[in-house]
């Protein structure tokens, strides 16, 4: 197992490098002089010259790329001009908030989606199946940002059950119950679409598995039906569900950008959008590379989970 993880990590290196190349190429699309663009309103001749010196912006592209890469490897992602602090500090802080939000949503969508799909399959064409199919259809059709807004109207403004926005109460709060309190709505809104997708897929995977001969074997052994569904069938269906969970993690992470805006959540998505509007390009660049790299690592974790589940995968 250890060697398999190592192998996957090594094979991820070119992907990680590729990510930096792509981000670098995109950033070189910036029209005009890069130093001036990066500095924006801070572009005094002094600052421009200093930045050119630090990042080698006046050098050829290839040299520039390696200077940038070298800096990143030593943990130096540059300095954000709009915030006047190191990019990496801001990114880490914001990513922490995003992880709380997206992580919760991911767990929600996985658990609820698989559960709904399983129930739906076990009760195919029954009332529960129809109800779930309908809710799923609505869920995957509502844009998450609109769903978030409607939830605010209903649960925060009308019913006053939950706070309108933010991660903690402004006065007092700051503890775990406060965080959970603030997390409920954004996490649910963010999870909605992914839950729908996971539920659909789980239903299809379960239906496929339930027709297999080994399910008949389990029934012939006298295994209680609940165990047949939640054990034998679900376990086998997970083999095709897990890769989709990996994909959905990307969608949850993407959706977090909208949800963070709608709910004023201090995460990295909101940071990126603010940075784009303020033309703080080093912050955008650092944030994108960092999150993309984390996502690649997450997908390795998904592969490892898959190999743990399925003994037929050669490790």
């Amino acid at each position: 197992m250890g060697s398999y993880i190592l192998k996957r990590l090594v094979s991820a290196l070119p992907v990680l490098l590729g990510i930096t190349v792509i981000v670098f190429l995109i950033m070189s699309l910036i029209p005009g002089d890069p130093a001036t663009a990066i500095l924006g309103s801070y572009a005094t001749p002094d600052n421009v010259e200093k930045l050119n010196r630090d990042l080698g912006l006046d050098k050829p592209m290839v040299t520039r790329y390696f200077i940038w890469l070298g800096n990143m490897l030593t943990g130096d992602f540059g300095r954000s001009f709009s915030l006047n602090r190191p990019v990496i500090d801001e990114v880490l802080e914001r990513f922490h908030a995003t992880l709380i939000l997206a992580g919760t949503s991911f767990v929600l969508c996985a658990v609820l989606g698989i559960l709904a799909g399983t129930v739906s399959a076990a009760r195919q064409y029954g009332a529960a199946d129809k109800a779930i199919t309908f809710v799923v259809l609505i869920g995957i059709s509502i844009p998450s940002f609109f769903l978030g807004m409607m939830m605010i109207l209903l649960f925060a403004v009308d019913l006053r059950w939950l706070p309108v926005s933010g991660m903690y109460a402004i006065y007092g709060g700051g503890d775990l119950p406060d965080l959970i309190w603030h997390l409920i709505m954004p996490a649910t809104a963010l999870a909605a679409v992914a839950t729908g997708v996971v539920a659909r897929l789980s239903r299809a995977a379960m239906l496929e598995v339930l027709r297999q001969d080994y399910i008949r074997t389990a029934r012939a052994k006298g295994v209680p039906e609940r165990r047949v569904i939640m054990g034998h069938a679900l376990r086998a269906a997970m083999v095709s569900i897990i890769p989709v969970l990996g994909l959905q993690a990307g969608f949850v992470l993407s959706g977090a950008v909208y949800i963070e805006i709608v709910f004023q959540w201090p995460g990295i998505g909101r940071m990126l959008v603010d940075a784009i509007l303020k033309r703080d390009l080093l912050l955008v660049q650092g944030g994108v590379v960092f999150v993309a790299a984390c996502y690649v690592l997450f997908n390795i974790a998904v592969d490892v989970a898959q190999s743990l589940l399925d003994p037929r995968i050669k490790t």
């Binding site: 992907v15 792509i22 950033m27 992470l253 999150v291 996502y295």
Partner: peptide, 25 residues
């Protein structure tokens, strides 16, 4: 195809945001 795989390694919105950041809103 390797290049395509690398682009696919991004959560899609990051890439879109990076492009908009470079080109401007």
């Amino acid at each position: 195809m390797r290049a395509v795989d690398m682009v696919m390694a991004f959560p899609y919105i990051l890439l879109a945001l990076a492009i908009v950041a470079a080109l401007g809103p």
